[in-house]
Simulated assay, not measured.
Amino acid sequence: MNEYSPFFSDAYWWLSLIGGIHCVGVGIYIRYIYQSHNRSHKLLAAIFVLIGIYFFTGLITKETSPVPIHLVLTLFVPIYLLLMPLLYLYCKNSLTGQSKNNYWKHFAPALISAFTVSTAVLLRVGFDPHIHLEPINSLKQLSHINVLAIIFPLLLIAQALVYFSLLFSMFSQYRKRFSVLDQTTIKDIRFRWLVLLTVGILFNWITRLALVAIPFYVGDYFTTLNQAIARLSMLITVYVFAFYGLTQITRMAYLRGNLASDSNSPVKASAQLLNAEEMQYLQGVIKDDEKST
């Protein structure tokens, strides 16, 4: 396996670079080109930018980092705490059509964790910045160097469980409303996109948990191959998101065009509330009333 380690290291680096560039590119496209009436596109763009930041962390190595690598990765954890609130708010805004939310309630954990990390770095509490020459391959080694790197991933797991339960509860309520309609509508297309986005992020969250987090916490060694597989899964998922999103945008534009053409076309006699005989009888009643008055 040692002779393949340079290959996996290079593949991991390139996956991180390509994935980061593509995710940030998709985020910029959504933010400045694809617009929505309730401004939910800004939340979606922020989600893809955060995924891009996750990819770019793979470019940070012990040689390229100006500070100890375990400290740098800990500083990124408060940013990851923004992903699930953004996903929940985007889905909620897209389904309800509203744009006013209590953002402070959802983003408070990320702000508090950022303040905690900044304070710990300045006061050097909970970590030893000088012990970074030896590679860290297990939880036992990291516990003597960086306590925050152990606590924050557990907070990420707890936060993800809470928000995924809220999302699927919300989806179960709206699925009953959309299932009543026999034909495909714009709301139905948007609902399917939100479900795909949530399931894709959940799948990659479980994949990273199984390949990276759980082996690390049980004291096993994690390898570059496991991290490369997790990033490759996320990159493929982003491509699926982009392809599916573009197809659904095309379908929504087609449906909007049909709705506009139907609203401009004259109403046929067969589509009226009253047929010809009923209209004639109603006109006769009106004339009789006029004569009697």
Rank of each mutant, 00 (worst) to 15 (best):
A45W: 07
N204C: 15
L122R: 02
Y217G: 05
K187E: 13
N102F: 02
G19T: 09
I51M: 08
G284S: 15
T224Q: 11
L123H: 02
V285H: 05
S165V: 06
L59T: 09
S263N: 14
Y12L: 10
T184H: 03
V199C: 08
N2R: 10
L15R: 00
A120D: 09
F164K: 01
A120L: 03
P215H: 12
V121D: 00
N226M: 11
T198Y: 03
T237L: 05
G97Q: 02
Y244V: 14
S165R: 13
K62Y: 01
F115G: 15
L259T: 02
Q159C: 04
L82I: 09
N275E: 08
S118N: 07
P6F: 05
I47W: 02
Q283R: 10
I236L: 15
C91L: 04
I28G: 00
K176F: 04
T293P: 01
F55R: 13
E3S: 14
I21P: 04
S40G: 08
T185S: 15
P266T: 10
I18Q: 00
Y221Q: 13
I112E: 02
C23L: 08
F171D: 07
C91M: 10
A160N: 05
N226G: 15
W104Y: 08
A108D: 03
E277D: 12
K100A: 11
N146E: 14
R192P: 01
H22R: 05
G200I: 07
Y174S: 10
L232E: 01
A149M: 05
L246N: 14
S113Y: 06
V195S: 01
L122Y: 13
K291P: 01
L73S: 02
G126T: 07
C23F: 04
I18A: 14
Q159I: 03
P129G: 06
L154Y: 01
L259H: 10
I131K: 14
K268V: 00
I51K: 02
L50F: 03
N137D: 04
I214G: 06
R256H: 07
R208A: 15
L181F: 11
S265E: 12
Q272W: 01
W205L: 07
A45M: 08
T293M: 08
P78H: 04
I145H: 02
